[in-house]
């Protein structure tokens, strides 16, 4: 995948962007902004089966697999959660199943989101990551079965 940025490169970009902010308010404003900018998911996708259940907010996550590349779309009824999932999409979308499975996503810790969000909320973030990796794993297995 030489024609576009690696997962690591995008993670590094995000870490750099967050380094510009001195206060948590600014960081949250940026996350909220990312949430607001994320294209809303079509209502047809807002189904129970597409829900990733966090602690309190609802997250819908759908994936698409074309020419060896996975893309994600998501939405949430809470804007900070939507901003968090928007970051995950920016990092993981448009990569191969293997790249997604192997991504270490160290940026979450580097931008302070694992420590700053309470455990109950961080679980929502981790649940989203897990769901995205599960999609990648499923496509990989499906792929290997089709192609021998």
């Amino acid at each position: 995948m030489s024609d576009h940025k690696s997962i690591q490169a995008i993670e590094d970009e995000l870490v750099e962007e967050f380094a510009l902010f001195d206060s948590w308010d600014d960081k949250y404003e940026y996350i909220i902004d990312m949430g607001k900018k994320l294209a809303p998911l079509e209502n047809e996708h807002k189904l129970d089966e597409n829900k990733v259940r966090g602690c309190q907010s609802t997250v819908w996550l759908v994936s698409d697999y074309k020419d060896g590349i996975i893309s994600f779309k998501a939405d949430s009824d809470a804007i900070i959660t939507k901003g968090l999932v928007s970051m995950l999409i920016r990092v993981l979308s448009n990569h191969t199943p293997d790249e997604i499975i192997e991504a270490d996503l160290g940026f979450i810790q580097k931008i302070g989101m694992t420590t700053h969000l309470a455990q109950t909320r961080a679980n929502g973030l981790l649940a989203m990551v897990k769901q995205m990796k599960n999609f990648a794993l499923a496509y990989k297995i499906k792929n290997s079965m089709t192609h021998g």
């Binding site: 949250y28 909220i32 602690c55 309190q56 907010s57 009824d77 809470a78 804007i79 900070i80 959660t81 969000l117 909320r121």
Partner: peptide, 8 residues
């Protein structure tokens, strides 16, 4: 969403 308020 109440959660957003709670976090902030």
């Amino acid at each position: 969403h109440p959660q957003d308020i709670g976090i902030l």
